[in-house]
Every structure is written in structure tokens, then in C-alpha cells.
Nucleic acid binder design. Structure first.
Lengths: 256, 256
DNA sequence: GTCGTCGATGTGGTCAGACCACAGAATACA
DNA sequence: TGTATTCTGTGGTCTGACCACATCGACGAC
């Protein structure tokens, strides 16, 4: 039915006129044009395939990419939850990207930690700089701190720890930084967890972390940006410095 | 051959035991174990499919994801450049993710610019803090500035502009920040280009930008971190402020 | 009339097989 | 010896067929 030799894809711009990329371009164009927005449903795969003149497998390839990148969510069956639905949730995609890049050596763990430091400092600076009358909502973060006071396993504690930092990022209102923080934290989660086993005393460390969290939140609430920055830096770099000995095997070989 | 009813995938950990995800997990495991490193070639798709007990289409799905995320590069034909080769280049994946998230409304353009500001400031701070005797290599960035002195179209100028900022990030040595900067810049490139057409005077603006670049580089070379930070902030926010009127239609609807 | 059951329908998920294009290697031939 | 041809192995794509699943609607029991 469709182009066997001529390959009618109208976008051989760069170098690889692959079928699934043309589907991706098409959907991106519809997003850009506002024709597709979060909450909308994409056409069924089979319809999209015939409409665009490609095979269903190519459409599926594009949808899979969109799914991994957090752009859509797919569901089987029928009804409102079925089909491919635009969601535009970057966190998952960012986490996958970073996790795999760390696994593949594209990102050194030390760089991930350093970047987290930069972003985290920016977040608390931003939060502390807010006008008090229109302050960001720090309640979710505070609630997480309360939850961390309970008796928890290391994994549970670290999960809440991550959620706390993420809550701060969310409160700052920058979706890009929030997604990045989520991905960064996620990508080194296994290292944080593996390193926890090598700490001299988990109870001491967790007590210290709890206090540091309280301190950071208090500094933000008191609009003391420099203090908040300092505390955040010490908090993060301190934890990773304490547990670095065992893992952290970086492999910055960037051959082709 | 493989499991029709029992679905022998050994990793139904979370919620979605999809075939291509199991392939992805398998490859991620091999990366983590050091069994696969940049430069290595993955097994052929057909072999991988039979080995893992899934269809070739599922293998292809995983490989496509890895390709989009910048983990592998695929090539047809035979010879050393064929097959799927691990490369671990995060820039492309980051750019795709951010571009699509901006298109889908997951990222507001303003947040992208704000994040770029944060990272760019961190980069120059880091560069300025280096010990003079082991200073980062700023030569590539300087060369780009020389190239920008020529008579260029707006698109050419902006491309070199992006390359200059990227060169700074690379000089800082943080691969994560470099990839993020690349992606951020890339995702708003169309806005930067579209906005350039609305500037009162391109020649004036480009002259100013050139001077600002020189200033930033000089501040870094003089180890004046505060100055470099200030200049970078003014440089970026100034440009976007000057051209914001027309585009920048954010759509922060985060339903579903 | 109401409610439960059970098929019809439409969706994504997967598999299998068949081609094609491509690039290098092996072979045949001049 | 050198060139042309064929072979082989790779990813890229299409097609068709299933399956699992979730909803909807018709039908019959009560």
C-alpha cells in the first residue's frame, strides 16, 4: 500500500529517515501545534499506522520511545484508561536515562552526586528567596520528615529521604529541576543503598541525617539562603563521603 | 519455543512484566556487571531474541529505547560499524527527552531557561575555582568565540553560541551537567531562533552577545567566580528577556 | 423491572515469518 | 594480480496472526 521504493516520509532532514522516527516527528509536531495535549488520547496504533503509511511495528517503536520518555502512558483493554494517553511526566524518563547512563559509564557517579549538589543548592536558595507571604508549600516536605522519625529500615529511610529532597524541589516550582533531581537520585539509589551497609553505624547516621533535614528545612523557613546552601552541601556530600569506600567504581571511558 | 502461558520472564518485580522491559533489564544488568562496556557490540537481535526467549520485535523495542537514550548506536550491513554498539552518549537522549517534554507541556520553557541559568552559573563557578596550574582547557571555547566574530546568519551564530556554552560545560568536566546543558539548550533552540526574528536589531544584539561571551571567558580565566556568575546570569536571562514577547507559550497543565 | 452473566468489540502486547537495504568478506573470473 | 560477482550477516520494515485485557451491550433469570 505504501511507499516501497520512494519512502514518502517528508522529513529526511538529518541522516536517518527511519520509519519510527517519522512517526515520532509527526507526534511531536502535533504536540507542538497544540493538537495533542496532556490528557488526550492518541489514535489507535493500527489507525496511526495506516494514516502515516508505515507498519504498525514502526508506530509501536515510536510509542515505546514516548512511553519511556514519560510522554505517554499506554493501557490495554477498552475504556477511558486504554490506549496511548499523553501525560508528559518527565521524571520516569529522566530516571531511566540517568540510570542507564550510569550503568553504561556515560555518567560517573561522582558527577551525578556533584550535579545533585548544584541543583539541591539552587532549590533551597530559590525557596529561601521566596517572598514570605507567597511562600512555597513546604508542608509535604515537613510531613516526610515526621514520617522519617519512625523506626525504619535503611531502604525505607532512604526512600523517604529521596522523597523529602524531591518535595523540596517540587516546592521550588521548577519542573525541570524536579525531574532532574528525581532522575539523579534514582540513578544512584543502588549505590546509596549498597553503601549504607558499609556505614559504621546506621542508627547514628540516620539520626544525623534526620537532624540535618530539620536544619535545612528550618533554614529555608527562616529565609536564610546561605545557611540552607551550606547545610545542603554538607548533608549530601557528607553522606556520600561517608559511604564511598566500597562502591563508586567509575568508568569514564568514552570511546566510540 | 518459549512460554506461551507461564511467561518465564524472571523479573515481574514491579507491575509490568513486558517482554521488551525484560530485555532492557537484561542489558542493563550486563552493563552494570561490566560485561558490556562502551565500544562493545551487543549480540545480533535474532540471537538475543532466542537467548532471552522473546520475539525479535521485543528485542528491537529495547534496543530502540537504548538508542534513543544514547546508550547504543546501531548500524546496518556488516563490519565493525554494524550491529548495536554501546556508546553511552547521554547528550542525544537528554536532548530528545527535553525537547519532547517541552513539546508536551511537561516542561515550561521558563523552567528550562531557569535551569540553564543554574547550571551555567555552576559551570563557571567550577571553572573559576580550578587551580590555575591544572586549569581546565578553555581553548575550545575561545576558538568558538573567534569563529563567532565572523559574519554569520542568526542560525549559525546561535549554533556557535550553544557550542560555546557547551564547551564551557565540557571544560568543567562534569558529564552530567554537560549533557543537561546540551539537552536544555537543544530543547529551546526553536524558541531562541524564533525569538531572534523579533529582536529590534540583530546586529546590535549579536555584538552585545559577543562582548558578553568574552567577558565571561575573561572572568573565568581571571578566577573571578562571582563576576563570572553575574555575567552569565545577565547574559542568559538578558537574551531571553529581550526576545520573550512573541513565543514562550507555556502550558503547565499537568492533568492525569 | 432489575440484576447478573456472557459474548462482542476494541485496545495494546507479542510473536513469527518474510522481505529489503546495506556493507563487508569470500569467491570467481579475466 | 586485480577486478567483478556472489555470499553472508546485520539492522529496518512490513504483514498477519494471535493473546490478554477491559469495557459495553444484549440477553436471560429472577
Amino acid at each position: 500500500m505504501q511507499a516501497t521504493p520512494p519512502q514518502a516520509t517528508p522529513s529526511p532532514a538529518t541522516s536517518a529517515p527511519r520509519a519510527w522516527q517519522s512517526v515520532l516527528t509527526h507526534i511531536e509536531g502535533r504536540l507542538l501545534a497544540g493538537d495533542l495535549a496532556p490528557g488526550d488520547r492518541l489514535p489507535p496504533e493500527r489507525l496511526l499506522a495506516t494514516d502515516l503509511g508505515v507498519g504498525r511495528s514502526s508506530v509501536r517503536g515510536a510509542l515505546r520511545v514516548l512511553e519511556v520518555l514519560g510522554l505517554i502512558r499506554t493501557g490495554t483493554g477498552s475504556g477511558p484508561a486504554s490506549g496511548a494517553i499523553v501525560i508528559a511526566r518527565p521524571s520516569g524518563g529522566m530516571a531511566t536515562l540517568m540510570r542507564l547512563q550510569v550503568a553504561g559509564g556515560g555518567f560517573a557517579v561522582a558527577d551525578v552526586v556533584a550535579t545533585r549538589l548544584v541543583l539541591e543548592a539552587a532549590v533551597v536558595t530559590e525557596l529561601a528567596a521566596d517572598e514570605p507571604d507567597q511562600a512555597a508549600d513546604l508542608a509535604p516536605a515537613a510531613e516526610l520528615l515526621d514520617a522519617m522519625d519512625l523506626d525504619l529500615t535503611e531502604a525505607e529511610f532512604l526512600a523517604l529521604d529521596a522523597a523529602f529532597h524531591l518535595a523540596l524541589a517540587e516546592a521550588s516550582g521548577n519542573s525541570v529541576i524536579t525531574a532532574m533531581m528525581s532522575g539523579l537520585r534514582n540513578s544512584v539509589e543502588r549505590y546509596a543503598l549498597a553503601g549504607a551497609a558499609f556505614l559504621p553505624s546506621w542508627s547514628e547516621t540516620s539520626t544525623r541525617l534526620r537532624a540535618e533535614h530539620r536544619g535545612i528545612l528550618a533554614a529555608v523557613e527562616n529565609r536564610d539562603a546561605p545557611l540552607a546552601r551550606t547545610l545542603v552541601r554538607d548533608h549530601i556530600s557528607g553522606y556520600y563521603a561517608e559511604m564511598t569506600p566500597p562502591p563508586l567504581t567509575t568508568a569514564p571511558t568514552t570511546r566510540n
